[in-house]
Amino acid sequence: MTDMAQDKSYERGQVIQIINSVIDKMEQNTAPTHEIVSHIAELAQTLDKLKKEIAETDAGAAKEEQIRSATDELDAIVSSTAEATNDILAACEQIEKYAEENDIPQIAEYVSNIYVACGFQDITGQRITKVVGAMRVIENKVDRLLKMLDDHVGPIPGAPAQVADLPADTSASNSNEPVSIETVDEKKDLLNGPQLPEKAVTQDDIDKLLAEFD
C-alpha cells in the first residue's frame, strides 16, 4: 500500500471513529457538551482538509478539459479512419473496374479481401464509441462528486459553476449479471457493441446455436 493510500485509509477510519463517538455520546447523554462540540469541530477540520485535497486534485479542470479533450480526440479518430477507409475502398473499386475491363478475375478475390479487412473501421468505431460512453459516465460522476462536495463543504476551486440538474446516473447496472431473455430491455441491454476477442462468440458458435432452432 502506498503512503497516500495509507493516509486516505487512516482519514476515512478517523472520520468514522469521530462520527460514531459523537453519536454514542449524544445517545448516552454522558459527555459534557464541550466535548461533543470539540468532536464536531475535529470532524469539520477533517472535512476541510479533505476539501482542500480534492481541490488540489483539480477534478473540475479534469472534467472540463482533459475528459472533453480525450472524447474529442477519440471522435477525430473515428472520423479520420472513416475517411481513410473510404479512400481505400475507392481505390479498390477502381482496381476492380480495371480488372473487369482487362479480364483479370484473380484480382477480384484479392480486392474482396481488402473490402472485408476495411470492416475494421466499423468495429473500431463502435469500440471507440463505447469508450466515449464510459468517459461520459466518469464525467457525470465527477460532476456529481463536485456537486455533493459543493453542497456540503463549500465551493471547490476549478469545479464547473453549474452542476445541478444532471441526468440520472444509470451507470450502476452490473453487466456481469446473467440476462434473462424474457426480461431483457432490448433497446439498452442488447446493445453492447463488439466483444473483446477472448470473450467473443464466434461465427461457428452462432451457427451451432441457430441450428438448434431448426
Binding site: S112, N113, Y115, V116, G119, F120, D122, I123, Q126, V179, I181, V184, E186, L190, L191, N192, G193, P194, Q195, A200, V201, T202, Q203, D205, I206, L209, L210, F213
Partner: peptide
C-alpha cells in the same frame, strides 16, 4: 452485427431472423 452475445442471437432468431453473421466477417461467410 458486432452484437455477438448468445442472448442477441436467440432474440433475433425468436423475432424471425433467417441468419446471423457476426462482424468481422469474411466474403465466404
Amino acid at each position: 452485427t458486432a452484437e455477438s452475445k448468445t442472448e442477441n442471437v436467440i432474440i433475433a432468431k425468436q423475432a424471425g431472423v433467417n441468419n446471423y453473421i457476426v462482424k468481422p466477417f469474411n466474403a465466404e461467410t
